[in-house]
């Protein structure tokens, strides 16, 4: 397992390098630059701005400069938030997103997986119908509508939870639930589907025939085996939830990272785009490594790329 982790870290470096290179090329191909604004600036001023951020140099040179800085762990400066470095911005925002994303992930797993299990075990009965109805609701209503609904019901009508801002643990409840809503629904569906798959396996049928269908051992085995697809999606899901959701952070006015993924692209804030992308990539690789380790624990037969 230690070798697996070490190998993953070694593999991660070229992936990160490729992510940085590809993103670097992508943003330069997309039209519009950081200094295009509502009011056009005189050419003299645009020239000054480009010189200040080395954007007047030929692209290959900019690339080399960027990679050198990256090698030193310096993600560069923001063009939009003038006096701040990308490192500063991400250091401020990351802890907030970690808390929010972690809460949402925990909520999604704690609600989604049992919901799916309940539905699968009670297949065709009312529990199943109800659970699937709920999960359908969860994935068919956009996050901004759920957010608006929550703010209206709990913040304005009942006045029991704050409608926004990030001051106390109470302020985390609505955003975390909103963020967890669709992944929970997704996990429920997935758990149900793969549990049903397992229930039809021969060994389960044998157990059922012997009248053991309700026993804890059988249930444990069913759950254990049906968690594989669930754990697969958990990797990307973790990365997505922790890097935050633009919609949730935007609606509840939370100072997290999610908004930078959208606004940096909108502003063509080159270094900030690259910085957020790299953070996301690192998280994703980490999460996927954990997932692969989890596979081996759940099912030792699955040898993953030794």
């Amino acid at each position: 397992m230690l070798t697996l982790i070490l190998k993953r870290i070694l593999m991660a470096l070229p992936v990160l390098f490729l992510v940085a290179t590809l993103s670097f090329c992508l943003i330069r191909v997309v039209p519009g630059g950081p200094f295009d604004a509502d009011k056009n600036l005189p050419d003299e001023i645009v020239a000054n701005l480009k010189a200040k951020y080395n954007l007047d140099k030929p692209l290959p040179e900019q690339y080399v400069l960027y990679m050198q800085r990256l090698g030193r762990g310096d993600l560069g400066v923001s063009y939009k938030y003038v006096s701040r470095t990308v490192n500063d911005i991400l250091l401020d925002a990351f802890p907030v997103s970690l808390v929010l994303g972690g809460l949402a992930l925990a909520l999604a797993v704690l609600v989604g997986v049992p919901l799916g299990a309940v539905a699968a075990l009670g297949r065709g009965r009312w529990q199943d119908t109800l659970a699937m109805f709920l999960s359908t609701f969860g994935i068919s209503v956009p996050g901004f509508v759920i957010g608006a609904l929550f703010i209206y019901v709990f913040g304005i009508q009942l006045r029991i939870l704050p409608v926004g801002l990030w001051e106390s643990p109470w302020h985390m409840i609505l955003p975390a639930i909103t963020l967890a809503f669709s992944p929970a629904a997704y996990l429920a569906r997935l758990t149900r589907a793969s549990a049903l798959e397992i229930v039809q396996k021969d060994w389960v049928r044998t157990a059922q025939a012997k009248g053991l269908s309700g026993s804890a051992t059988v249930l444990k085995h069913i759950m254990r085996n049906s968690l594989v697809p669930v754990i697969t999606v958990l990797g990307p899901l973790t990365a997505i939830l922790i890097t935050g959701s633009f919609v949730v952070e935007y609606i509840y006015a939370i100072p997290g990272m999610g908004r930078f993924f959208i606004t940096a692209v909108m502003n063509r804030d080159y270094d900030l785009i690259l910085g957020t992308t790299l953070i996301f990539a690192v998280l994703l690789i980490m999460a996927n490594t954990f997932v692969d380790i989890a596979y081996q624990i759940l099912d030792p037969r699955m040898r993953i790329s030794d």
């Binding site: 593999m11 590809l22 992508l26 943003i27 993924f261 785009i273 992308t277 996301f280 990539a281 994703l284």
Partner: peptide, 19 residues
């Protein structure tokens, strides 16, 4: 191939879509 998926995942969706 899985690292390729990581790569594709890591590229900002928004950039790809704008492009």
């Amino acid at each position: 191939m899985m690292r390729g998926v990581d790569l594709a995942y890591s590229l900002p969706d928004l950039l790809v879509m704008i492009l």
